[in-house]
């Protein structure tokens, strides 16, 4: 298995590397007891300059389940960044306190700083609107688990494709697979950014940007929904008008394929109604749980343990 030191983007991760992480995550999921002491004596630093529930807790859970310890902070306000400390200095300092770090920051390009200034492995827990690679990896793992493959699937991403940091990471991850057909469904204000489109054009990937899910929902294997944020719309009337068109209810899913799955990175607000939760296709809570196995696999890989 190939080891790596920094995970800040899915763009530079090969399909082989992704598959090796998924394979290890699957082994951990099946036999977690085999991994209980793999990180004894190791410390994971949690450097979260922005709020988080799932990402932070699942990284903490992952390290604790591997027998390691955690330290860190959950807000920039309680760290020295509030006094003006740079990310570079924070990372150099944390190098003496921990064996591996996960960082979430509102700034974009943190990965390049980590590569330059950190001697310990660092994983992105989300950077600005740029990337959220571990979310994308757990999304891919969930899809792989459901279908046994990712190649050849028809997948739609719906909602805020412009500001959601998961979206570029998931798209670049999907681009590593063969014959994936992608539908990008969003209001015109929230389409993918030009630099993401430009990157996608460099892959052998079929993608279609549309604004209405009804025309394709019956042929989909996966629908990945993201939250449309109210504050992204200068005119609140536009938001009110659009939000209902991007809402998933049991009626929306009337004619989906038997094997169809519905994913969401969470938190959701009202883009998936609670009645959908009990349908067999609703996999978003399982998806969140999968995050622990994938992050355990990543910690083991970056520490060079497995």
């Amino acid at each position: 298995m190939k080891f790596t030191k920094f995970i800040f983007s899915t763009l530079n991760l090969s399909r082989e590397y992704l598959e090796s992480i998924f394979s290890l995550a699957s082994k951990i999921e099946q036999n977690p007891e085999n991994y209980l002491n793999k990180c004894n004596g190791k410390i994971l630093a949690i450097l979260f300059f922005e709020p988080s529930t799932r990402t932070m807790l699942s990284f903490e859970s992952a390290m604790l389940r591997l027998g390691g310890s955690i330290l860190g902070f959950a807000s920039g306000k309680t760290s020295s960044s509030a006094k003006g400390e740079t990310i570079a200095d924070t990372l150099r300092m944390i190098n003496g306190y921990a064996d591996i770090a996960v960082i979430r920051h509102y700034l974009e390009g943190v990965g390049e700083i980590a590569k330059k200034y950190s001697s310990i492995p660092v994983i992105s827990g989300g950077t600005g609107t740029q990337a959220h690679p571990t979310q994308a990896m757990l999304d891919l793992y969930t899809i792989k688990k459901a279908f046994g493959k990712i190649d050849g699937l028809k997948i739609a991403l719906m909602g805020d494709l412009k500001y959601g940091r998961t979206i570029p990471s998931l798209l670049y991850g999907l681009a590593k697979y063969d014959d994936v057909t992608l539908y990008l469904i969003s209001p015109k204000e929230l389409k993918i950014r030009s630099h993401v489109r430009q990157r996608l054009n460099g892959f052998n990937l079929k993608f279609y940007e549309i604004d209405d899910i009804s025309q394709i929902i019956d042929e989909l294997d996966v629908l990945y929904v993201t939250r449309i944020q109210k504050e992204r719309f200068p005119d609140q009337l536009d938001y009110e008008r659009l939000k209902s068109s991007y809402k998933i209810s049991p009626e929306t899913l009337n004619n989906v394929k038997d094997s169809f799955i519905l994913l969401h990175p969470l938190p959701r607000v009202d883009e998936i109604t609670p009645e959908v939760d009990s349908l067999p296709c609703a996999k978003y809570f399982e998806q969140a749980k999968n995050g622990v196995f994938v992050r355990m696999a990543l910690i083991l890989n970056l520490l060079g343990v497995e």
Binding site: G84, T86, I87, A88, Y106, L107, E108, G109, V110, E112, I113, K116, Y117, G128, T129, Q198
Partner: peptide
């Protein structure tokens, strides 16, 4: 021009671009 780019935020890095 991205105000949230690390190169615009007191970090010890200089702007750098690839010509695409």
């Amino acid at each position: 021009l991205n105000p949230n780019c690390v190169t615009n935020n007191r970090e010890p890095v200089f702007p750098s671009f690839s010509v695409i």
